[in-house]
Write a protein that binds this DNA or RNA. Structure first.
Lengths: 197, 197
DNA sequence: GTAAACGGTCAACGGATGTAGAGTGACTTC
DNA sequence: GAAGTCACTCTACATCCGTTGACCGTTTAC
C-alpha cells in the first residue's frame, strides 16, 4: 500500500515526482526487507506503489539501482567515535536499537541485512559501512595489539543480536525488551572491549 | 567438479546410484553455499555433477528437496548438554569451529546459513535445530529467570561470529586463528552465562 | 536367453521476469 | 494559446528456469 496515492494530477510536477518516487522506494523497502532481492519483482513493487513497472526503471535505471536507493543503514557513528572505552558498549547498543525504532529506517536496514548474505552490493555496504568503519573507531579506542580483533568481535556480536532479533526472530530474543538486553549485554561487552578490570 | 566421474558403466546398480547421488549433492552443496538458493539452478548443479538436469528431479523431486538434502547443520549437542556452567562457553566455541573444519560439513553448514535469511526452509532448520534446541539445553544449565534470555543471547553471539567469519568475511575476524578467538571470547561468554563471579 | 527394472538422456512446455521503445496526455513556458 | 517538456503507460521482446513425459541402453531376475 503506497503511503500517499501515487501520481495525483493537479500537483506541480516537482511535487508529483517527489511523491511517486517516495512511494516506489517505500514499497521497494518493504518488499526487499520481507522477501529479499530475488523474490522481489519490479512488477510487484510497481503494483504496490500504484505505478507502471516501466516507470520504476526510468526512476532507478535498474533493479540494482532500486535496491541501492532502498537498502541503507542510517546510523552516524559520531557518538561511537567520541565514546570512552567504558561508554563503547552502551553506545553501540543504543545506536543499534535506535536505528530499528523508526519503521522506515528499520525496513531500510532490514532490507540491507536480509540480503547481505546473498547479494553482492548489500554485502559490500554491510562490510564497509556497517562493520569495518565503526570497527576502526572502536579499535582506536581500545588500542593495543588485540584492539582490532576485539573491535571486530564486538561488531560480530552486535550483528548476531540484530539478526537473531529482527531476522531469525528467535522467540526469547524477540520478546525481551530493549532494556533487558542492554542490561545483560553491557557488562558482557565491557569484558570484551576492556578485559582488564 | 564431481569428486568421482558420474555414472560409470560396469558398476553394480546400487553403487552407481550411490555415487551419482553423492556427486549431485556435493555439487549442490557447493553452489548453494556460494551462490545461494535462488541463483543456484538445477541446470548448473547437474552440469557440475556431469548429469542431466532431469535426473536431479528424479532423485530429489524438487529444487526444494535438493536443498533439503544439501543444507544441513551437523553438530550433535551432546557435549553441550553435559557441560557444566563453566564449560559451556568453551564447548559451544569448540562445537562451532569443529563443524567448519571438514570441507564437506562446512559447505553444508554454509549453504544453510547463507540462505536462512531469504529461504523459509533454511530459516526453519536454523531457528529450531541450530538456535532453539541448544538454547534450551544451555538455559537449563544456567537456570534462573534470565536463563532463557542469556542462552538466546549466547546463540546470537555465536551466530554473529560465524557469519562475520565465514559469510561476511570481515578481514580481522577471518585472519584471526581459532585459538585467538576462543581465548578472547571464552571469558566474555562466561560473563554472559554466569554473571555472578 | 528373454523380459522386466532401472539409471540416465532428450526435447520441450509453461510461466515469470528484467528491460526497451514508442506513445499519450497533463503541465509548463513563452 | 501554442509548442515543448515531462510524468507516466502500453506493448512486447528475449531470456531463463523448474519441471515433465517419452525414450534409450545397460543391468538384473527368472
Amino acid at each position: 500500500m503506497p503511503a500517499s496515492p501515487a501520481h495525483p494530477v493537479g500537483l506541480p510536477r516537482e511535487e508529483r515526482r517527489r511523491r511517486t518516487e517516495a512511494a516506489i522506494v517505500e514499497a521497494a523497502r518493504e518488499q526487499f526487507a520481507e522477501l529479499g532481492f530475488e523474490r522481489t519483482t519490479i512488477r510487484s513493487v510497481a503494483a504496490a506503489a500504484g505505478v507502471d513497472p516501466a516507470l520504476v526503471m526510468q526512476y532507478f535505471k535498474n533493479k540494482e539501482g532500486l535496491f541501492g536507493a532502498s537498502a541503507r543503514w542510517h546510523v552516524d557513528h559520531k557518538k561511537l567515535s567520541e565514546a570512552t572505552l567504558d561508554e563503547v558498549p552502551r553506545t553501540a547498543l543504543d545506536d543499534l536499537f535506535a536505528g530499528f525504532e523508526d519503521p522506515s529506517r528499520r525496513d531500510s536496514a532490514i532490507a540491507l541485512l536480509r540480503n547481505c548474505l546473498t547479494h553482492e552490493a548489500a554485502l559490500d555496504v554491510m562490510r564497509e559501512e556497517v562493520m569495518c568503519e565503526p570497527q576502526a573507531m572502536v579499535a582506536a579506542t581500545i588500542g593495543g595489539v588485540e584492539g582490532e580483533l576485539r573491535a571486530g568481535l564486538l561488531g560480530a556480536t552486535m550483528i548476531g543480536i540484530t539478526i537473531a532479533r529482527y531476522l531469525l526472530k528467535i522467540p526469547v530474543v524477540v520478546e525481551a525488551s530493549r532494556e533487558q538486553i542492554e542490561q545483560i549485554m553491557t557488562p558482557v561487552l565491557q569484558a570484551l572491549v576492556d578485559p582488564e578490570r
